[in-house]
């Protein structure tokens, strides 16, 4: 049930992010979600793309450090309390979330990506608590990957 995210190391240099986007564009890879975590010296770009394996190859060839990272995507209601419901499970089950971001919404549903040390444990905890975990196929069907 894991979904693989593309994680990229970039120095804070002008034009570097555009280079990544161009490399992916030239390989006809579609970016569906993009987030950037930055420090004063470097940034970590996290992308959900339609072909993560190809994306890693293309970036490596372009001299860019990119790896695949397992993340967990959950489906919750796009209403007040939707995110709280997900986070309450994390708190209750003593899981440690490293970071999270939103993939956006479809109708009444909101999709959240979460990074855990132990994805399997997190998925089991969500399923036990009735939180819907989304697979890559689901994402594709939703036109989100």
């Amino acid at each position: 049930m894991n979904v693989q995210q593309l994680s990229i190391f970039l120095e804070n240099k002008q034009g570097r992010l555009a280079e990544v986007a161009n490399l992916l564009a030239n390989a006809a890879i579609n970016i569906r979600t993009a987030t950037l975590a930055d420090t004063s010296d470097f940034g970590v770009v996290r992308l959900i793309v339609d072909d993560v394996d190809k994306a890693v190859d293309v970036l490596k060839e372009g001299g860019i450090t990119a790896v695949k990272t397992d993340i967990v995507i959950v489906d919750t209601t796009d209403r007040p309390g939707g995110l709280a419901k997900v986070l309450n499970v994390i708190g209750k089950k003593n899981l440690n979330v490293e970071y999270l971001y939103s993939l956006g919404t479809r109708g009444e549903r909101a999709y959240i990506a979460l990074r855990f040390d132990d994805s399997e444990k997190a998925i089991a905890a969500f399923q036990e608590s009735g939180v819907v975990v989304v697979s890559r196929e689901d994402l594709k069907a939703l036109n989100m990957a």
């Binding site: 970590v44 790896v67 990074r115």
Partner: peptide
């Protein structure tokens, strides 16, 4: 240089 071996998607690990 950050090699693939040490690269992490988590900023705190890089720090």
């Amino acid at each position: 240089e950050v090699s693939e071996k040490v690269f992490s998607d988590e900023v705190k690990k890089l720090e």
